[in-house]
Design a protein around this nucleic acid. Structure first.
Lengths: 345, 345
DNA sequence: TTGAAAGCGGTACCAC
DNA sequence: GTGGTACCGCTTTCAA
């Protein structure tokens, strides 16, 4: 009913064998241009479209790649525009190659990746959950091309896309230091500081922060690490913290979304940015150019990240060699208006 | 290599026929619990996962549904967090039923939906392009279950999910009128007013606006319709327009993203909200609760929209009857702080 | 240059 | 309860 016409119908109409039709479709074998014309005509007339299930069953390729993203609430995709941008990049690249994307949420606990085998996916892109993922071994066992995004896995054999997070952390901190700030708080997110090394992205940004401090001869002060959720609300709480610490003149948030909350929280408390406190974020979300004041932040191009991931994946799928298994994408400091010079006392 | 073990291997190990293995997997036919145990054990030991390509080839179902969203730049998914929320809803519902989502951008011009037939998709969700889509006929010709989201198609046979846009328009306008505003501008988006009827969503919001006006005995004034892009930048331009029209005391933007721009533009010009101008948006993006001041807006739940679309689609796929082919989701006015009482002169 | 036929890995009907 | 086997729609030898 759904798919009534098949290669047989075409063959009959064109008065050839199904093998010939197949050859025409795939441009293989020798087919006289006359026959080809007849076949093409038949295809058109019938509105025939080959059944990829059948084709793929035979060829062992599915033309499908999986994009696995973390979920927050069980069963629901993580609520962050970041993923959409990433998806856009992957989809764009894949579509040009006639691949499609299957998107799947990932419940850390009970994900078996069965669907990858079941659907014969040709490749897999796994987006970091923040924490060292328990999924790695499962993914390796699948024995198909894959790419990890933002995962910071210490295995050199794995294909990985990441950001120059450390440089980002360094740039942000350096910028603040150059503006004469000395006590710089860091909003790291809702994780215990002792476990930050498990969260590659955060850890690297934090390393960049410490490095810049060290270069400036300033001692690292763990009491300046604010452990609050990466959300607008978390940012607002961080603002409260700032209000209570008048000696702290600047804050570096590892995420724009929280920086937005910080800005808002400070404003509500009558604390002026950047006169009283400087604020710097990370990500360069579309919105942040339009906060008031516009947010100074470390910028990354997420769509490009998606494209890069797809690229690295296809290098494997197509067996083209790649110079490296790790791709580190650049960051850029976008100085806008939430950071300002601190006059000495 | 990729998928080495198949149903035969399981059958051999368990010392049964492949038919029996199939029965166990699908819970069909009578299988003695002893045999079943043996088979399950073999499956476990081998780590067997059935090849869905083969199964689906036979059963004519793919367990796949397509989500088609518009693209902006050719080849790139539309840059709007809205779609991610929608996707989250669809994915959640589908996953519970062991379906997967194939996501595809949609180039108005040259989309043939071939992939739907090729991949034997079981259903299709098409998200509105704003304009009456040229895709309708193509989709109908596919002869598979489908749902249009936000498309306002005038064919009663089509399954459609939409929002109570008209009520939203009415609520927003009524709210402004109740606050004593009389000259209310509307930022409709970057389309000529003459063609607004082609854009269902906008048209309905606009209808709601006119209705509220009419009920209040106020004449509609086309010169109050601002035709600028639906973007932050467009909103900023709208603010400029407002600055030049001091008799206009309120503005209703059909989109939060533009409302954010309006807020920003007004602030830059020293125009106070809501003292000088009232602003109201539409969508209730996550961000808008955190603008300053927090934006009054018409709220919709986009994840629920995705779930509703999936639901309607599965009603068709599973052949369960549904009371209606059209589902209209509710809106809600969220009064925050950008709208205020207008003292008479 | 073309066609016959053997799979790909399952499902499901029908015997036993 | 269990197994034999004819498909599903296509690709791919191999022969003609």
């Amino acid at each position: 009913m759904k798919q009534e016409i098949n290669i047989m119908d075409v063959a009959q109409l064109a008065n050839v064998s199904i093998a010939t039709v197949s050859n025409v479709i795939n441009g293989k074998g020798r087919v006289s241009s006359l026959t080809e014309k007849r076949v093409r005509k038949a295809i058109d007339e019938l509105g025939y479209a080959p059944n990829l299930l059948a084709r793929n069953l035979k060829t062992k390729r599915s033309g499908l790649i999986g994009l696995v993203v973390p979920t927050v609430k069980p069963g629901r995709l993580k609520d962050n525009p970041f993923y959409w941008d990433l998806l856009a990049g992957v989809e764009e690249y894949a579509r040009e190659r006639d691949f499609h994307i299957i998107l799947s949420g990932f419940d850390e606990a009970e994900e078996s990746f069965e669907f990858v085998k079941e659907r014969q996916l040709d490749g897999l892109i796994i987006v970091g959950t923040g924490e060292q993922s328990s999924a790695i071994d499962k993914v390796l066992a699948l024995n198909i091309p894959f790419v990890f995004v933002d995962n910071y896995l210490m295995n050199p054999d794995l294909y990985q896309i990441s950001l120059d997070d450390r440089l980002g952390g360094w740039l942000a901190t350096k910028h603040l230091l150059d503006l004469n700030h000395r006590k710089i708080a860091v909003h790291i997110g809702d994780i215990p500081l002792e476990r930050i090394h498990q969260f590659g992205v955060l850890h690297e940004r934090w390393n960049g922060y410490r490095l810049a401090l060290e270069e400036a001869g300033i001692a690292y002060d763990a009491s300046l690490m604010i452990q609050l959720p990466t959300s607008i609300e978390g940012g607002q709480e961080a603002a409260e913290w700032l209000a209570q610490h008048s000696d702290v003149t600047a804050i570096f948030s590892f995420s724009d979304i929280a920086a937005i909350g910080i800005l808002k929280g400070l404003k509500e408390r009558g604390i002026k940015v950047p006169q009283d406190k400087s604020v710097i974020g990370f990500d360069d979300l579309y919105m942040t150019a339009f906060t008031s004041p516009p947010l100074t932040t470390v910028s990354q191009n997420i769509v490009v990240k998606g494209i890069a991931a797809a690229q690295l994946l296809f290098h494997q799928i197509e067996n083209s060699s790649h110079y490296s298994r790790k791709v580190v994408l650049p960051v850029e400091l976008k100085i806008r208006e939430t950071t300002g010079w601190l006059s000495k006392d």
